[in-house]
Design a protein around this nucleic acid. Structure first.
Lengths: 195, 195
DNA sequence: TTTTTTTGTGAATTGATATTCAAAAATAAT
DNA sequence: ATTATTTTTGAATATCAATTCACAAAAAAA
């Protein structure tokens, strides 16, 4: 039986991440992805059903590790809800810091894709959200947090995060991301009013 | 000289708002917009340069009235910074409450468009942002607000707002929007911690 | 070595849809 | 009524790019 020469599957998805980040999904051409990955156009269709399928696999790659982090954090009894909340933010920031192109794809493509293909979109994202909400609820139960509307709060925070990541990807340095991270934590915890 | 029969220009942009909201910009077909507006395909190209041009004009329509509101609010000396901040949020919420399809176009298309066509994107948005930042800065100067990073704060808040509007557009009732509005104001002012 | 199976290729096909433009229709001017 | 001007039309054109597939090359099996 013939062995695969090199790892074309990986080369393709990495080329796709770069290309989607650069040009956006709709303007990205399969030809360009093939060139960047050093494979023939046809090879792409050996490893992926179609262009959409590549994007869906990218989102699996984005959210699976973050969800795994979350599970670990959420189940650790030695953390307070506030600490868990901060670690949750850290796990998102850390993931995107390592691979800014994934952050670009996330901020630009996730919403459209979730709307267009709700069935096929990665489950790991939904699971991540669930764990996040659990953390907030436990903080409310223990009176560490205010009794705010959890769904509204988590959407607001994730939306804000996404927007900041979007800005960050234009100049993705470690320093600027840390500044964003600290500001978000501080603001979420204490709000805007000075008292 | 022949007079225009009816207002095709307006019919076209309104049909386009509906269509873009429903299908997203890339999947929207000029043919469908023409049908919805009850005009021939060719007429669209009489009033607009191309498909992109329609979208750009929609964003003018979205941000001009909001910016005008903002100017009025920002220059009114009888409001405190906190009041101005709340009125600023109200002006965004009110605008989209009146025309939810515009909210859909805003949440789905603005970022991509600003990235792809930064030169042609409506100036009113940038002006709106500037007025908003001025309000925050004046609150910091008067020690009513904490000394937070203004750019990070305004991105976070606008990102959060957009995400909540996105959710709201799935079921755009007055009641649910008011709930979001109150939650956002409360959260922005005082944060998550219960003390 | 020969055969079989798996993997890789890219020119050709297919489908889609934005845009054009020559002609027609509607109105105004003479 | 005739001509001139403006507005409208939609079939035809042009462009673009995703996907296919018949074939080739490489490796494994016989």
């Amino acid at each position: 039986m013939r062995h695969k020469e090199g790892n074309k599957e990986k080369a393709i998805i990495e080329a796709a991440i770069e290309t989607f980040a650069e040009d956006g999904f709709y303007k990205s051409k399969i030809v360009d992805i093939a060139e960047k990955a050093n494979v023939a156009i046809g090879s792409i269709y050996v490893y992926y059903k179609n262009k959409d399928d590549i994007l869906l696999k990218i989102f699996d790659q984005i959210w699976e590790p973050i969800y795994n982090d979350m599970k670990r954090i959420a189940s650790d009894k030695s953390y307070t809800p506030t600490q868990k909340f901060e670690f949750m933010l850290d796990s998102v920031f850390d993931a995107f810091e390592k691979y800014p192109e994934k952050a670009v794809v996330f901020v630009n493509e996730q919403n459209r894709l979730m709307k267009e293909r709700p069935k096929s979109f990665t489950n790991y994202y939904e699971l991540f959200i669930k764990e996040g909400e659990k953390i907030i609820k436990s903080g409310i139960r223990s009176s560490e947090f205010k009794n705010l509307n959890v769904r509204i709060f988590r959407r607001f925070v994730l939306g804000g995060l996404r927007e900041l990541l979007r800005e960050w990807t234009k100049n993705p340095t470690k320093r600027s991301l840390n500044q964003i991270r600290d500001s978000v934590k501080y603001f979420c915890k204490t709000g805007i009013l000075d008292k």
